[in-house]
Design a protein around this nucleic acid. Structure first.
Lengths: 125, 125
DNA sequence: GTCTCATGTAACTTCATGTGTTGCTAGAGT
DNA sequence: ACTCTAGCAACACATGAAGTTACATGAGAC
């Protein structure tokens, strides 16, 4: 499948697709071929890859929209608040990673097929 | 304490301070007085207010930097992925709120005084 | 060999969002 | 009146994500 086709499916741009897929390729989850007949192919077992793997392959983008203003500060109040918040955010991020680490692509694949079946068996809306 | 003084302490602007404090005032955590001699005063018990209360008083700003592209979609794949992610993010947010709900301002106040004491008793760096 | 089709990548533009700023109004004390 | 304060709307700026353009490189088709 080419970046062009993927981009249309995702309502975005082929270059954006390549940027994202680049991370997945570096981790061996997909493979790309240049030239005529080229494009992207899957190169992993769906039950061996989790959302966490993908999150990390995508360079683990910032998870929280909130956080410390600065790491180093002279201000004792800021220091105390930073410490309290960081502590919570660190733990919560660990929870997040753990949960994502339990969701395999195979599971999502199965969900997808179930929904697909529902749609064909009268579940049309 | 005036917005002006707070702004200097926080390295920001008095108007920004008023914007933030506005949320706290609506919830009764602080009180403001206009005019000469006016400014902000604390109007709550420190052990009755948690970081969660403050987070919510500040209109519960967006917590996560990631999330669904759109809520409604025709795409079954997107739907499946959205569902999986939303489920995790919802749970993780609940964890976050629970943790913040256990941190009172009184606790932070105590931390602050401890650090202050350390700094005076030879803990200088 | 060269033409076409695909990825790879850098540089730039656009957009969304949060932060900072200005200007003005209103209230409260001197 | 005068000064000092919050309240508020409107605008400007900064940041980072997403989208776009342009061009180089590699691989098959002819």
């Amino acid at each position: 499948m080419t970046s062009e086709v993927l981009a249309r499916a995702l309502n975005t741009n082929p270059v954006v697709v390549r940027r994202l897929m680049g991370g997945l390729r570096e981790h061996g989850y997909v493979h790309s071929e240049k030239g005529h007949g080229g494009g992207w192919t899957l190169s992993c077992q769906l039950d061996q890859v989790t959302l966490r793997d993908i999150y990390e392959a995508l360079d683990a983008p910032r998870l929280f929209a909130i956080g410390n203003r600065s790491e180093e500060t002279e201000c004792l109040v800021e220091e105390v608040v930073n410490h309290a918040m960081s502590s919570v955010l660190t733990d919560v991020k660990a929870q997040f990673l753990a949960r994502f680490g339990q969701i395999t692509l195979a599971a999502l694949h199965a969900d997808f097929h179930q929904k697909l079946a529902e749609r064909f068996s009268g579940g049309l809306t």
